[in-house]
């Protein structure tokens, strides 16, 4: 977690999204600030990934605006969108590595396609990122030969390779056990400390993800309820947040006042 400046680099303004007759998002407003980590939480299948895809320009909102670095994604040309995306790194839910390429080529791909770097520079950069992810000796392996945790770390190495300003994480620890999840959090923390990128995470891993984030945004009833600090989130009196906190975290995370009562009674 790094220091924030109050300049939002991504803004969702009254964003609505529907697929056919089905409305998924309604009047979503969310600001992402530079250098911070924001985690979007909420029940499965409510459209968290849809929010992420709108920020990346993969989906266009039905109405409303998505501003990235001040530019409205639905009003810019393909070329301008590509220029914005040069600042993005993405760790997809199922990593989306190219299964016919080995690990090295996967991580090197953005450099080979988007930069004029020499093969020597590419090798140096890729190996540095893989080492940062605690991945040694896997260069020649294919994605199908790696474990889930390793795949995610390769995915993060690929996301980092162009030194992006923003990295999106779509459920980075889903399907991993506690040790593997901790590995991911460790390399995430280490890399963010070093590269100072802004991150937007969609996660189910509540409350552990709270230790890593600056802001928590809850998606409930097709809209973002609030984007507040994890501490405020856990103490919030907003009915949707309160109900989410109680159902997902249980009595350990009851609010301060209630906690006082609880101890007094004992």
């Amino acid at each position: 977690m790094s220091e924030e400046s109050r300049e939002p680099i991504i803004q969702l303004i009254d964003v609505c999204k529907s697929f056919g007759d089905q409305s998924v998002l309604e009047n979503v407003n969310l600001d992402i600030f530079e250098g911070t980590t924001t985690v979007i939480i909420g029940p499965s299948g409510t459209g968290k990934s849809v929010i992420l895809k709108q920020m990346m320009g993969l989906l266009k909102p039905t109405s409303g605006r998505v501003l990235v670095f001040g530019q409205d994604l639905s009003r810019i040309s393909k070329r301008e969108l590509q220029a914005i995306r040069m600042n993005f790194g993405v760790l997809f839910q199922n990593v989306a590595l190219f299964d016919s390429m080995n690990v090295f080529d996967n991580v090197a791909l953005p450099l080979r396609e988007r930069t004029k770097a020499s093969e020597k520079e590419i090798r140096q950069n890729v190996e540095e990122k893989l080492a940062l992810m605690d991945l040694d000796g896997v260069n020649e392996k294919y994605p199908a030969q790696l474990s889930g945790g390793m795949l995610k770390r390769v995915g993060l190495a690929r996301a980092l390779v162009l030194n992006p300003k923003v990295i999106f994480f779509d459920e980075p620890t889903t399907g991993l056990d506690i040790n593997k999840s901790n590995e991911i959090y460790r390399v995430f923390y280490r890399s963010q400390l070093r590269f100072k990128y802004t991150s937007v995470i969609v996660s189910h891993d509540v409350p552990r993800i709270f230790k890593l984030t600056d802001y928590v945004a809850l998606l409930a009833d097709r809209t973002i309820v609030n984007s507040i600090s994890p501490e405020d989130f856990q103490l919030s009196k907003h009915p949707a947040i309160k109900s989410f906190v109680e159902t997902t975290m249980g009595p350990i995370y009851i609010s301060e006042e209630e906690e006082a009562d609880y101890y007094e009674k004992i």
Binding site: G57, R85, F92, Q93, A96, L97, D99, R114
Partner: peptide
């Protein structure tokens, strides 16, 4: 999502 991945990598 490999196609999405390509797009997000510009």
């Amino acid at each position: 999502e490999q196609i999405d991945a390509l797009e997000t990598m510009a």
